[in-house]
């Protein structure tokens, strides 16, 4: 009996890549970032975890899953919890600030 055919699995949300928005300009200093949003004209200061996420994406697109794997080895959250939820919340924050966008 042949296995039923299935359609190719769509990437889950966690596997879709994020990247820094094309109109953003930034500088990274130690564990902080300052970012200019060319669309809104706003200038943002990120520190600690948000700066780490942005800094990671500034080096190339990454998925939520990829960020989570990197964070598990590089970051120790003060809450002691696993970084997955914090990654999701931070990506949402950066998206709403128009500092990151989905990679093509």
């Amino acid at each position: 009996m042949n296995a039923p055919e299935t359609s190719p699995q769509s990437p889950s949300e966690a596997d879709r890549a994020w990247r820094v928005s094309g109109q953003a300009r930034w500088r990274l200093w130690e564990d902080e970032a300052v970012i200019y949003n060319g669309r809104s004209g706003d200038t943002h200061h990120l520190a600690d975890f948000a700066a780490w996420v942005f800094g990671f994406l500034s080096r190339g697109p990454a998925s939520e899953a990829g960020l989570t794997r990197a964070a598990e080895t590089q970051i120790e959250l003060t809450s002691g919890k696993a970084p997955g939820d914090a990654i999701a919340r931070t990506l949402d924050l950066l998206r709403r600030l128009d500092l990151i966008e989905r990679a093509a």
Partner: peptide, 11 residues
């Protein structure tokens, strides 16, 4: 003082 914070404040 944090440079990023200083930049935002001077802006």
């Amino acid at each position: 003082f944090s440079r990023p914070a200083g930049l935002v404040e001077i802006a």
